[in-house]
Amino acid sequence: MRKGLFFSLLLCCIACLTSCMKWDYGDEEEFASTDSGLFIVNEGNFQYGNATLSYYNPLTKSVENEIFYRANAAKLGDVAQSMTIYHNVGWVVVNNSHVIFAIDLTTFKENGRITNFTSPRYIHFVNDNKAYVTQLWDNRIAIINPSTYTITGYIDIPNMNTESGSTEQIVQYGKYVFINCWSYQNRLLKIDTETDKVIAKLTVGIQPTSVVLDKNNKLWTITDGGYEGSPYGYEAPALFRIDPETFTIEQQFQFDLGDAPSELVLNETKDKLYWINNDVWCMSVDEDHIPVRPFLPYQNTKYYGLTVNPNNGDVYVADAIDYQQQGIVYRYSSEGELIDKFYVGITPGAFCWK
């Protein structure tokens, strides 16, 4: 659930969201997954409650779908947004059900949950007793205690209101975290994790979709430029390299008006950037220009999610197809050769490596 053009529809529905999600309980299935693998977070459809979690084993090329439901006999919820692993626990953020689940990485069973979020997006662990949760439709970042599954406080975001604006992905450099503000926003935030305060803001382009930290300790963010007719504006997207020490833009790479780049990720050595812009693109962090040829050409697909295996550099890209049927994940070598493809859930949008 990424594009700003969906927001007017979503906002009309927000008043009725709290009571519409139900978890159905039945028979549980036993899992014992000990191998390294890849979790695929399938968003499902907004207000249908059909988000799911899949698990892929790269060694055996086997995939297990609906693992949360099968392990817990309960639905994952409405619009699964992201997943993060911390201390061998998987934290699955379910946006429109206002919940984050903690799951066992071997059995896939629920260890606990944190509730009462407005619309959670991503979770980042500062330490064992503190994590930040970014949100949509809320001008606050939630502070949680993961050991007690409770919200302990909030960080107020200046110049953001509940009707527009979102805080999104989080990277940490020293004691500071950096967060991109996406929906109808144009900035990155710098937060001191010791004081839980926003200490600086950096203006980039319209709607930065992602943020990463490379091998040179440089921040990168990519903007989608908004959309034609947007009340916030519409411009050519751009890729920005930022020095986190001075929190200033070092270099800007321009795209064409009408492009919509997103899903900026790094390879395992953090020296190559990958992103989706119809095609899948790849660029060294030391390049001084955007490549002219894509890494993976567009082939009547709807590339929607992207990740790189931290162990061997294989590239995985999710095809949402029509957002109604099971999506497909394609696995490529670092040279762009197709290795495997497999079906997952509806609208595969995020990945998490175990």
Rank of each mutant, 00 (worst) to 15 (best):
A142Y: 01
I144L: 02
I144A: 06
N145G: 08
P146G: 04
S147N: 09
S147V: 14
T148W: 11
T148P: 07
Y149I: 11
Y149G: 12
I151Y: 12
I151G: 13
G153Q: 06
G153K: 01
G153I: 10
Y154H: 13
I157E: 05
P158R: 00
P158K: 02
P158V: 03
P158L: 01
P158M: 00
P158H: 02
N159F: 02
M160D: 00
N161S: 00
T162W: 04
E163H: 01
E163M: 00
S164Y: 00
S164D: 01
S164I: 04
S164N: 08
S164Q: 09
S164F: 01
G165S: 11
G165R: 04
S166C: 09
I170Q: 05
V171A: 05
V171G: 10
Q172K: 09
Q172N: 07
Y173P: 07
Y173R: 05
G174A: 04
G174S: 09
K175V: 15
Y176C: 09
V177E: 04
V177I: 11
V177L: 05
F178G: 05
I179W: 05
N180Y: 06
C181Y: 06
W182Y: 14
W182A: 08
W182G: 10
S183H: 12
S183G: 11
Y184N: 09
Q185V: 03
Q185P: 06
Q185E: 12
Q185N: 04
N186Y: 01
N186I: 06
N186G: 10
R187K: 09
L188C: 07
L188V: 10
L188K: 02
L188T: 07
L189Q: 08
L189P: 15
L189T: 09
K190V: 14
K190C: 13
I191M: 08
D192P: 15
D192S: 12
E194Y: 13
T195I: 14
T195G: 07
D196N: 13
V198S: 11
V198R: 00
I199F: 13
A200R: 11
A200D: 15
A200M: 10
K201T: 15
L202Y: 06
L202C: 13
T203L: 07
T203G: 03
V204C: 13
V204W: 06
G205S: 09
I206N: 07
Q207T: 12
Q207G: 04
P208C: 03
S210L: 02
V211W: 00
V211P: 14
V211Y: 09
V212G: 11
V212K: 10
D214T: 10
D214A: 02
K215I: 14
K215Y: 15
K215F: 11
N216Y: 15
N217T: 15
K218Q: 15
L219V: 10
L219C: 09
L219Y: 06
W220T: 12
T221C: 14
I222D: 12
I222V: 14
T223R: 04
T223M: 03
T223L: 08
